[in-house]
Computed example of a mutant assay.
Amino acid sequence: MTRTHLPGIIAMAAIVVASNILVQFLYGNWLTWGAFTYPLAFLVTDVMNRVYGTAAARRVVLVGFVVGVVCSLIGTQIMGEFGPLVTVRIAIASGLGFLTAQLLDVGIFARLRDGAWWKAPLVSTLVGSTVDTVIFFSIAFSSTLSFIHPATDVSWASQIMPILGAGPMAPLWVSLAVADWAVKLSLALLALVPFRFITARLRAA
Rank of each mutant, 00 (worst) to 15 (best):
V131S: 05
G165H: 02
R111F: 11
A151Y: 01
A204I: 10
T37I: 10
I198F: 01
W30P: 00
A157S: 12
S72D: 11
W30S: 00
P150S: 09
G107M: 15
G34N: 03
R203H: 06
A18D: 00
L126M: 13
L40G: 01
D105A: 13
T4A: 08
G128M: 08
G83K: 07
A110L: 05
A170R: 05
A110F: 08
V178I: 09
I139Q: 00
P171E: 05
I15R: 01
E81T: 14
R59N: 11
T37N: 02
A200Q: 12
T152V: 12
A140S: 09
I139G: 01
A170P: 04
Y52Q: 12
G8D: 10
L122V: 13
V17H: 00
I92L: 12
T144D: 13
A18Q: 02
T100V: 11
W117P: 13
F82A: 13
V69T: 13
Q24M: 06
S124C: 10
I90V: 09
S158Y: 06
L145D: 03
R58I: 03
L122H: 09
S94N: 07
R59H: 08
Y27F: 15
A110Y: 09
K119T: 15
V106G: 08
S175N: 08
R113L: 07
P194K: 03
F141W: 14
V17C: 00
L126W: 10
R203I: 08
S175G: 15
Q77R: 11
I198R: 02
M12Q: 05
M169S: 03
V127Y: 05
L6M: 11
G165W: 03
I148N: 05
C71W: 02
